[in-house]
């Protein structure tokens, strides 16, 4: 996105979105953790972009530690850590870049973010925020994982899920599902509207 990014043909982006209004700070810390960064580098990632919302301080602190760790270990292609706060125009550019670079999206389990990311047919790791009371994030994440749309990650340890995401890329289910009978009849919402009013054409 910026000149400091040194974006080349072999670049591979991991994009993390944590919710704009009430950011999931544990996810920011987890994704910038040293073991997560090592796993990303092992899997050929060159860029890590975090949408931190209002939690800039948390991001800056974790990013500084992450950058110094990358400098010490050194990686052939380099590993750039960057952050954005909130984009009122949506995250289209970021998702497109992930799609082009065969990258990965790590997201909080808000249904809006899930629905948006899945339209790009990119591997998505969803991390439910277990500290929220009365939320359906975990249920939704479990159900979506079972249908093969995404992977569910644990905020305490993202490494195994990131390892799994490379294999998942080729076998993930298409979303939204094609509305023609797989194991049962399905309908599109437009068809249900017509049917309710009795329109045939």
């Amino acid at each position: 996105m910026t000149d400091t990014w040194k974006w080349i043909a072999d670049s591979k982006l991991c994009f993390v979105t944590t919710g704009a209004t009430a950011p999931f700070t544990e996810l920011i810390e987890s994704v910038l953790g040293l073991s997560t960064i090592d796993t990303l580098i092992q899997n050929g990632y060159t860029h890590l972009l975090v949408q931190y919302g209002t939690a800039k301080d948390v991001f800056e602190r974790s990013a500084a530690a992450g950058r110094s760790h990358v400098e010490q270990t050194g990686s052939a292609l380099g590993f750039i850590i960057d952050g954005i706060d909130f984009n009122p125009e949506g995250l289209r550019t970021q998702f497109m870049l992930v799609q082009r670079s065969n990258g990965l999206v790590v997201s909080h389990a808000g249904s809006g973010s899930i629905l948006e990311a899945l339209r790009y047919q990119i591997p998505l790791i969803v991390v439910p925020n277990t500290s929220l009371l009365d939320n359906h994030q975990e249920e939704l994440a479990v159900a979506m994982e079972r249908s093969g749309y995404l992977l569910r990650g644990d905020v305490k340890n993202l490494t195994p899920t990131i390892q799994k995401s490379e294999g998942f890329r080729v076998k993930m289910s298409q979303f939204p599902p094609i509305t023609s009978g797989k194991h049962r009849e399905t309908k599109s919402f437009a068809a249900i509207m017509d049917e309710t009013l009795g329109f045939i054409d």
Partner: peptide, 13 residues
Amino acid sequence: CRTIYVESFARVK
């Protein structure tokens, strides 16, 4: 005034 209600996608159980 026919009505269609669609339960949220986030409601699984």
